[in-house]
Design a protein around this nucleic acid. Sequence first.
DNA 1: ATATCTATATACCAAATGGTATATTAGTTA
DNA 2: TAACTAATATACCATTTGGTATATAGATAT
Lengths: 188, 188
Amino acid sequence: MDNRSKILLCALELFSDKGYDAVGIQEIVDKSEISKPTMYHYFGNKQGLLDALLKEYFDRLFCKLKDVIVYQGDLPLTLYRIVMTYFNFSKENPQFYRMQLSMIYSPKKSLIAESVTTMNTYQYKIIEDLFISASQDHGNMKGRHCIYASTFLGMINTYIGLFLDDSLELNEECIYKAVHQFMHGIYS
Amino acid sequence: MDNRSKILLCALELFSDKGYDAVGIQEIVDKSEISKPTMYHYFGNKQGLLDALLKEYFDRLFCKLKDVIVYQGDLPLTLYRIVMTYFNFSKENPQFYRMQLSMIYSPKKSLIAESVTTMNTYQYKIIEDLFISASQDHGNMKGRHCIYASTFLGMINTYIGLFLDDSLELNEECIYKAVHQFMHGIYS
DNA sequence: ATATCTATATACCAAATGGTATATTAGTTA
DNA sequence: TAACTAATATACCATTTGGTATATAGATAT
């Protein structure tokens, strides 16, 4: 494996284990068995490393989400596929999702927030657009797409958080129930 | 105001603004306009300060929760009161709730987690006990109290997160809808 | 063949980190 | 009054922090 990938991998492990701010550059380069200037060569600074890490993984998720979010009149089906995509992604990249979860509510003035907010806003926007499309078929959804997008993502993250703590199995029944419950909130 | 309270207040402000790990002791004592040994006199070390801060505020929340969680056969009503309690608490202590939210998913090996987990487990336990009581009246709830407690708390935190970002107003309609949607997940 | 560029290392830096040794003041108790 | 305790300050500490100046090996392009 090339040094760049080695650094990214070790950084992910350390960040997800101890938190971004609690991990020093020295620790990362020691674990990666490379030297500090190599790290600075590839990523510029600590935040650059985090940016690269977030981009690396989120791009994969966004790619899969785009394939799945094609509204064709059946909202529950589309939501089902979205939840499935998130669940699979978190199963394939548990360490990354752990880290990402820990950063969602990071203080606004923190350096983390700068990097993470972009990604979360993008996620949110994709989902929001879906609800806007769907509201053409569901009159009672109008004007509520912001809340739907946020709470839907919130619900997904709650479930994944439980899964990552080994408190819940993310199976099809779980997805079905989640979507069903969410849809009920829209209809009623 | 006495020095101890001054330190707690400044620490809360800084932690919620920048995150626990990103704030140094020096910064806290500068802002509090006290000296380092005074801080160490009261709290022992940085983690002791966080512990005291968490205890200070969570005790107030737990106190109010205990008054409200008295199951007498009407689960929706009790849930409504719980949500109301959380919402009011987050309105009264937005900075604290912000900080607490940012710590919920903190990495397990981090120092933060040690302090926060106790509080979150306790919260969880109170709610779980309620669902256990209620499952005597609702047969289809049996064995699912863990999931109910977790997702119920997750839902509450999602809403409060939106409120703290000025994306949502926490009014009675909001509580009603949240509880209604949650109950639907139980009945069906 | 020479110049350039990428990737890497050694050795270094000022500043900040969490924490403490020692001393002093003020109030309380014997 | 003497002894003790709680609360505070000055000055200090070793370690770690994020980051860099300089140098070098190897590949590539002119």
